[in-house]
């Protein structure tokens, strides 16, 4: 598997570290139902058998965290984005 780092170009998967699902969002700790929301955030996953948005870090490269959209049945990668851009877009949507 090879991942096209937006900053470094396509590199072998062995340069990257995996974290997991990029669709879960850290809840507001001050909300009244914060604990159940955190339990869901930390533990529950859709784990789809198809397109999966997931976090990888170019750990042996530029250190960038990336949001990779990948089909987990075929391992075919559709899209690679910088995590900070996705996060920024997501928080501006939320506002």
């Amino acid at each position: 598997m090879r991942i096209a780092c937006p900053f470094c170009g396509p590199r072998g998967v062995d340069e990257f570290a995996y974290l997991g699902d990029a669709t879960v969002k850290r809840p507001n700790a001050d909300a009244p139902d914060a604990l159940p929301a955190f339990v869901e955030y930390v533990y529950l996953r859709d784990n789809p058998a198809g397109l999966h948005r997931e976090l990888w870090q170019h750990a042996l490269g530029c250190q960038s965290w990336l949001v990779v959209t990948r089909n987990v049945r075929t391992h075919v990668i559709d899209q690679v984005e910088a995590a900070r851009d996705v996060a920024a877009a997501r928080s501006s949507e939320a506002e």
Partner: peptide, 18 residues
């Protein structure tokens, strides 16, 4: 291996990744 997919048919999300 497929627990999440099958459980999803029953409306459940599991603390599992495949």
């Amino acid at each position: 291996g497929n627990s999440s997919r099958v459980a999803a048919m029953a409306g459940m999300r599991l603390p599992i990744e495949s």
